[in-house]
Design a protein around this nucleic acid. Sequence first.
RNA 1: GGGCGGAUGGCGGAACUGGCAGACGCGCUGGACUCAAAAUCCAGUGAUGGCAACAUCGUGAGGGUUCGACCCCCUCUCCGCCCACCA
Length: 869
Amino acid sequence: MEGRYNPGQIEKKWQDTWEKQGVFRQYGREKKFYTLDMFPYPSGAGLHVGHPKGYIATDVLARTKQLQGYAVLHPMGWDAFGLPAEQYAIKTKTHPREATKKNVATFKNQLGRLGFTYDWDREINTTDPEYYKWTQWIFLQMFWKGLAYESYEPIIWCPSCQTGLANEDLENGACERCGTAVEKKPMRQWVLRITDYADRLLSGLDALDWPESIKESQRNWIGRSEGATVRFRIKNEESGMEEGIEVFTTRVDTLFGCTYVVVAPEHPLLKNQESGIKNEERTEFENQESGSRKQESGIKNWEEVRAYIEETKKKTEMERTAEGREKTGVRLEGITAINPINGEEVPVFVADYVLGDYGTGAVMAVPAHDERDFAFARQYGLPIKYVIHPTSFSYKKFEAGSQAIFQTIEDIFPEKDSETEGWLSETLMAEGKPYTSEGKLINSNAFTGIHSTDAREKITEKLETEGLGKKVVKYKLREWVFSRQRYWGEPIPVVRCEQCGVVPVPESELPVLLPDVESYEPTGTGESPLAAIDEWVNVVCPVCGGPAKRETNTMPQWAGSSWYYLRYIDPKNTEALVGKEQEKKWMPVGAYVGGAEHATRHLIYARFWHKFLFDIGAVSTDEPFRKLVNVGLILASDGRKMSKRWGNVVNPDDVVGEFGADAMRLYEMFMGPFSQMISWNTDGVVGTRRFLEKVWKLREKQSAVSSEQSTGSEKPRGIDSLLHKTIAKVTEDINAFRFNTAVSSLMELVNTFGKEEVVARAHYETFLVLLSPFAPHIAEELWEGLGNTESIFLSSWPVADPKLLVTDTVTIVVQVNGKVRDSFEISADATEDDLKAKALASEKVKPYLDGKEPKRVIVVPGKLVNVVT
RNA sequence: GGGCGGAUGGCGGAACUGGCAGACGCGCUGGACUCAAAAUCCAGUGAUGGCAACAUCGUGAGGGUUCGACCCCCUCUCCGCCCACCA
């Protein structure tokens, strides 16, 4: 190790040595720590410098924990099913398997150069049949528990990707993959009943050590709402009373203000019409439905209504939900709804501002107290009836001239309720605003005068006793649409038998292998390309032995990643997805690092599957990831995302080639707060490389003289104290993912060492250990140069000595009225009186006192004295 | 519209629990070394005034609490991210 610092030489050497000696496979140790990265999709583009940021962090953590005596599990693998490989296959006619293989090799090579501690014997790949066998197995367990079922409901369809999508796969109403406006399309599909776990997914969040923002995103995504369903009976002009429709509301206190009812275009009420949809447009399911229900709905303007429904269908989801769009709808002539609370008859509308798949697909419209209903009511000239009276209210009087602000309505109308009402409607109407907050009920018969909160309870109670309403909880979370009509995914392991219907493939026959096909093109018909392979599709029913056909849909991209963290623990197990002993030993994950963009998809899906696996006894923990940390995105130096399109991608290979892996690792940890988005700046790597050069040079100053600390005879010098402060800081900072300040304190230490004539060997060694998680290669090389024969990572992490954290003298700042005027050195054990006396004696302070006594003197021991004049 | 997070030198960012604002790094300026340059080393680097000691101002804007505020409270502006016709 003579001469210059040459990272290119030493890095490869140590990577090979660590691998050969199994330095990072100390699995026999008592204490366990499992740290995990969100595994990448091996794209054709390879890694850019943003990818490794999170991986470096877990690597720092893994090395630190190992030095602290833990057995550390730190694996890596590939989330390799998905559209890009398939699209590439379509273009180049190569099998996605081939492209995937090539990309994995590239990624692995790139990662290898950064010197990670991954145990490649545990590498997994979601497209490996031995892996997806267990993905299929989990699906089967869900099937048996009734959590996986077939549905014919309209789902989101991307016309460009030609596949169904889950609600979570949307971005601003468009397909998040290709940006195409999506449509609703009724089709047969597999669905997972994730809403069965909605409550547990919600309550489980509280105990997790996750960023509050992610937990909040999940809470919002699950979207629990407490409310009530209310049954409005339908009056048909021709045939009298019908069964009625149920609405969902969270504001049952406004029930007296309901002036109409709206159903979504998808509402079952509108499916009863025989004349409606043409046969060929109907799904199998709809045909069955309309056949079994003969009910006449009595809608007189059916043609108009039908036209509206058709129009809605044609609209893309984006058009339908576009911001500020005028509300549209059609009145259902010939029928009215009866408000159960007061028997009032109100009109019924169909309008697409009501969503078919939330609540009951129907709402009671209270325009006076809801923004959307208000807009619709104004559009169609419907009555607006105020029934909530603000109890605490700040409102500028609308009439010109007056600037008065009224705190309560009573300020203006102390007594007369009807006038209050008049004022309220007039003012709010004129400003174009409904009153959406809570308040005291007015105009609500027996409930008038009660506050909203009470009213909700009481009105619900009354409706309940009459069988016309019920307290319910609804969620925004939708069931997980689990079918994709694409090739490159896990086959769903079921067959369809003419006799027995849907039959799951027996466990013994797993995995159901994904066959090779001629063409990877999606068919667009709602069938996957697999449907074209007769010899694969046609099978014998496992139950009756009769002819049957395989399910040709595949699973979504998210399936394989919903449980992969379990497979690393026991990757070769052929009997179970993970061995019980092993699972107990390692789970839950102690630090999971990845991007915040997975807040509502991967991280909800994985929690859902994990809870299910817990319920069937396959795992021992209820939650998979005890601690989660978000890695902040690295942007290009132009502030945009790194992308081929912008030509601003920085390849880690180039950075490693120019500066070395250690300098790059150090830079990515140093560049800013770990979870913050930040722009790449190659000049910054220059700084960390210079730092490493200084570290390298320091070996010449290193000397076998003992530190004064170890002689024990003298008081500790400043350098001992600084070293121990650095130990404490680096240890704490790594633990809290504050890598940037950990690195800066290492730099400070080196700067101080640089000013010393000699650096004690013990100090230098301790420093190398502190540096080693960040810059492992150089640390190992220098460690060996000191004559150590065993890897630095088999040594141990230093512990700060509390005695050395305090210095014998401290600097006290002297302030006058809070402004710094002077400072002095004093022994750390000086009394408050000493400090006070010394401060008052200061020549700098005297002029401000002008011979008078100070009004007050504040002494903060060890810090400052503030003289108040 | 809702939720979350921000705003500190030329730049990235530090600052414990309310106690010397600007650590550390980049950049820049000057000097040393060199025939010269690079690299390296040394010194300086928030603004304004001053030869200087030093003084005044200074953490998006305005107010407040406090002996003392980047930090706590109120009002406002701007920016980022996520979600969004969810009744």
